[in-house]
Design a protein around this nucleic acid. Structure first.
Length: 341
DNA sequence: GTCGTGACGGTTGAA
DNA sequence: TATTCAACCGTCACG
């Protein structure tokens, strides 16, 4: 079924081919951003590329926000927050105070700096940890009659406050009424989610090539899995990148999969579809008109890591525009981007 | 006509 | 191994 869809795709109202549930090929995503930066209106981009305007809007918004044209990481789960260290600390808290509530444990994890607000386990997770992992310490099987005190402590909050405590927690997760001045993990904003990002160095280093022609030529392009995509991000473009002084790429949590090692043949960040199907369709001059003068950081092999060197957009030459126009015509015509200058 | 947004049906992959 | 769940996707329709 899935294979069928990937093979044939679907056709939207504009006549464009897409695969439901799957991201557009990076070539098209890139083109959307390119055209937008050329001043072409989203509605025109939508028509030219035969991509729904909602999608164009979404991709552009995402690009403006994160600096990446890449889709986010599809599937999977968030990284586990119940690391051994966290469990260990929870165990200690529980041992020292068998009647401690899960939300109190959560607060203590924050206060003690074991976790920050981005990776602190939820109250329900803590409850689960207490129940499953260290329940035998102070929260024995509820069928047991012994150890009543601790067991009751464990049961009590489960019965009264099953999992959520909206009235006892501040928006920051700080327990209401906790002593003022208790540190609640500040300064982790840049960490974002613990979820690995497409914009991690490992991803960038894994870039092998920019475009998979199959991804551009037709629905075959949807075949590669998301984890095989690598960073095609704002680094390829000269537009503003940092927001509020923060390099968004650094905090962008999009993709979580490292890419196979490779070289960057162009400052246009690579888009590795599948490792076995990577061609530098966009690796050459095509990138030149995308971001004239912008080059990889040679130290990190990333075009985005050094956000500071991003340059403002430069207008295309007529020749470049002509080439781009030709490229555009091929986006949905299976002949896209075989060359550009 | 353009654009932002939410619902929807779908895919994906870790747990 | 199969299922569940929560992330994401692009399209579509609406305002």
């Amino acid at each position: 079924m899935q294979l069928l869809e990937q093979t044939y795709g679907e056709v939207n109202q504009l006549g464009g081919v897409f695969v439901n549930g799957r991201p557009l090929p990076n070539a098209i995503r890139l083109r959307i951003v390119e055209l937008a930066q050329l001043g072409i209106r989203p509605c025109d981009i939508s028509r030219q590329l035969r991509v729904s305007h909602g999608c164009v809007s979404k991709i552009l918004a995402r690009y403006n926000e994160t600096g990446s044209i890449l889709p986010g990481a599809i599937g999977g789960s968030k990284p586990r927050v119940t690391t051994p260290n966290v469990v260990k600390n929870i165990r200690e808290y529980k041992q020292s105070d068998p009647g401690i509530f899960a939300w109190e444990i959560r607060d203590r994890l924050l206060a003690d700096g074991v976790c920050d607000k981005y990776n602190v386990p939820s109250v329900s997770s803590i409850s689960r940890i207490l129940r499953n992992k260290i329940g035998n310490l102070s929260q024995p099987n509820q069928y047991e009659t012994g150890k009543q005190a601790s067991a009751q402590a464990g049961l009590s909050y489960n019965h009264i406050y099953p999992y959520s405590y909206p009235n006892t927690m501040s928006p920051t997760g700080t327990k209401m009424g906790s002593p003022p001045g208790v540190p609640v993990t500040a300064g982790h904003m840049s960490i974002s989610r613990a979820w690995p990002s497409a914009h991690t160095v490992s991803n960038i280093l894994g870039i092998r090539a920019f475009m998979d022609p199959a991804a551009i030529a037709g629905t075959d392009g949807y075949g590669p899995k998301m984890e095989d995509w690598s960073s095609v991000n704002r680094a390829a473009f000269p537009a503003a990148h940092a927001v509020s002084g923060i390099d968004k790429s650094a905090i962008d949590p999009d993709i979580k999969y490292a890419q196979p090692s490779s070289t960057l043949s162009s400052y246009v960040s690579a888009c590795a579809y599948s490792p076995t199907n990577q061609y530098g369709v966009y690796s050459g001059p095509a990138g030149s008109y995308v971001a004239p003068g912008h080059h990889h950081c040679r130290d990190c092999l990333s075009s985005w890591c050094c956000a500071g060197d991003r340059k403002p957009p430069s207008p295309l030459s007529k020749q470049q525009q002509q080439q781009q126009h030709e490229d555009l015509n091929g986006v949905h015509g299976a002949s896209l981007l075989t060359s550009s200058s």
